[in-house]
């Protein structure tokens, strides 16, 4: 079993900021674990611009924003980075079991920062009636397919939910020659940023149907069509408003859920409904010395805020170490 001072789980913007700040505040031994081959987290697939206006005073793309921190990490001695390393288990006492190609290791750490990000809410979680054909993707999966793998998910798309990821993908796919037929939003206003409605939908003439719901997904093996209708304030169908759109792909963009199953394994208190850690103060959890930052703490609107709050998490971890047996 390895004994470490500080382990940061997750090499996206939250984890990198926490690692850098912890180092800056005196922690000598910082180990950052990232399960993907590269650092950058979800930003690697966010190829669009608009990140960093607050933090860098520039409009950067996701990879550019991540790249600034990746370069800082490389230039900071004392931060050990292990990519391709997956934390499979977390036990009480801050004991981690990690898997990488060729190796299983256990690590006990004195302080732990969890920066494990979010997962998307999927079709299964919101109970859309109809069949279960191929071609229904969460917007983030479609984004990964398109931007990381170079795979075109379909040719005629309907987007369920006007969250930012769905809006961004509406534009992304339109640029790739895909016909995005509509974005369907159950609320009377768009959920994502106004500017995304402009530059992702209005720019491309994609209709946004507010106060509408997808009532049925058709298709035996692959999506064939969706039925849509207007709904009232309670979400019930308004008679006479139903129409069908032929499509081969449905993107679902209906929210994010913090990933905290690892800390739950270790007995840390997690709110049953929001999946956020039960917390008295920013980044704190019910276990001293175990911090959660970034989207795993709560779903953030802009990455600049993630950076700001995750720098704090690194500092908090350093303070915890100093107060509890000294920073080596």
């Amino acid at each position: 079993m390895q004994e470490r001072e500080l382990v940061v789980v997750g090499g996206g913007p939250a984890g990198m900021a926490a690692a850098l700040a912890a180092r800056e505040h005196g922690v000598q031994d910082v180990l950052l674990l990232e399960r993907d081959r590269h650092l950058g987290g979800i930003l690697n697939q966010c190829v669009h611009a608009g990140f960093g206006l607050v933090h860098f005073k520039e409009a950067l793309t996701g990879p550019e924003y991540a790249g600034r921190f990746i370069r800082s990490m490389r230039g900071t001695p004392g931060i050990e980075v292990k990519t391709g390393c997956f934390v499979a288990e977390l036990k009480p006492g801050k004991v981690l079991t990690c898997l990488s190609t060729g190796e299983v290791s256990t690590i006990r750490t004195r302080a732990l920062v969890m920066a494990t990000g979010c997962r998307e809410r999927t079709r299964e979680m919101i109970q859309i009636p109809g069949t279960r054909p191929a071609g229904v993707f969460s917007a983030g999966l479609a984004q990964k397919m398109m931007n990381i793998e170079g795979l075109l998910p379909g040719r005629e798309v309907v987007v369920i939910g006007s969250g930012d990821i769905g809006l961004i993908m509406a534009r992304r796919l339109s640029l790739e020659g895909v016909e995005v037929k509509a974005v369907v939003e159950i609320q009377p206003h768009a959920v994502g940023l106004k500017r995304n409605v402009v530059q992702c939908l209005e720019d491309f003439g994609i209709p946004l149907h507010l106060s509408h719901r997808v009532l049925w997904i058709h298709g035996k093996d692959r999506v064939e069509a969706v039925d849509i209708a207007q709904v009232d304030d309670s979400g019930n169908e308004i008679a006479g408003t139903r129409f069908s759109l032929r499509c081969d792909t449905v993107l679902v963009s209906v929210g994010l859920i913090p990933e905290n199953e690892l800390i739950e394994m270790a007995g840390v208190e997690v709110d049953r409904h929001t999946n956020e850690p039960v917390s008295s103060d920013l980044n704190y959890t019910s276990v001293p010395g175990l911090f959660v930052c970034g989207n795993a703490y709560r779903v953030y609107d802009i990455v600049d805020s993630v950076t700001r709050d995750s720098f704090l998490a690194g500092q908090q971890a350093a303070e915890y170490l100093a107060e509890n047996g000294g920073v080596r």
Binding site: A134, M145, E149, L151, P153, G154, R155
Partner: peptide, 19 residues
């Protein structure tokens, strides 16, 4: 990869490989 399906012919996952 464009032949890979959810559950058999007709349920292919993606329509084109641009990589």
């Amino acid at each position: 990869i464009t032949d890979i399906s959810k559950r058999g012919p007709g349920s292919e996952m993606v329509v084109e490989d641009r990589a």
